[in-house]
């Protein structure tokens, strides 16, 4: 009975895997790249849980991201003039040149998902970081 002989290419491949060892140097490099990129992607997705911070947006564009733990005065000159103050881990709109001044009269914010909105100037200030996904109620912007 004629014995089965592997195809020449298959034989070479089998010999290669038999001799090469568990990992090739390039395989290690590729694996490291995958692990680093994966860790970076996961970090990007879960960064909101890292800690409390405030973000300031102008018409969807992120202008500033600051820690709530560091007091600061942030001046925004975009469509109009706004001054945002971070003090004692709370954020308030100190000044705005909008007509209705609703944002200036709004309470200070400190909880994840809370916002101060200056609709006439297109500015939104929001607290991020924490367990809350969204907040219902709050001041209506006008």
């Amino acid at each position: 009975m004629k014995a089965h002989r592997p195809h020449t290419g298959e034989a070479k491949l089998a010999e290669y895997y038999k001799n090469r060892g568990l990992l090739f140097k390039t395989d290690v490099i590729v694996l490291l790249i995958i692990i680093i990129l994966s860790a970076f992607s996961v970090a990007m997705l879960t960064k909101n849980a890292a800690g409390d911070y405030v973000e300031i947006y102008y018409k969807g564009e992120l202008l500033e991201r600051r820690s709530l733990q560091t007091d600061a005065t942030i001046v925004i000159d975009k469509h109009g003039h706004n001054v945002v103050v971070i003090e004692d881990a709370k954020v308030r709109m100190e000044q705005a040149d909008c007509q209705n001044q609703i944002c200036v009269k709004s309470s200070s914010i400190s909880y994840d998902g809370q916002r101060i909105i200056c609709a006439p100037n297109g500015i939104i200030v929001i607290i991020r970081g924490g367990e809350i996904d969204a907040i219902t109620g709050g001041h209506h912007a006008v």
């Binding site: 994966s38 992607s41 973000e55 992120l62 297109g122 939104i124 969204a134 912007a141």
Partner: peptide
């Protein structure tokens, strides 16, 4: 792997509509 982890999630950012925010 990269796209499965990060490429399929999208966020609008903070925008103004109806005189208030939307996200």
């Amino acid at each position: 792997i990269i796209f499965s982890l990060s490429g399929c999630t999208a966020e609008s950012g903070e925008n103004i509509a109806f005189g208030t925010f939307y996200n």
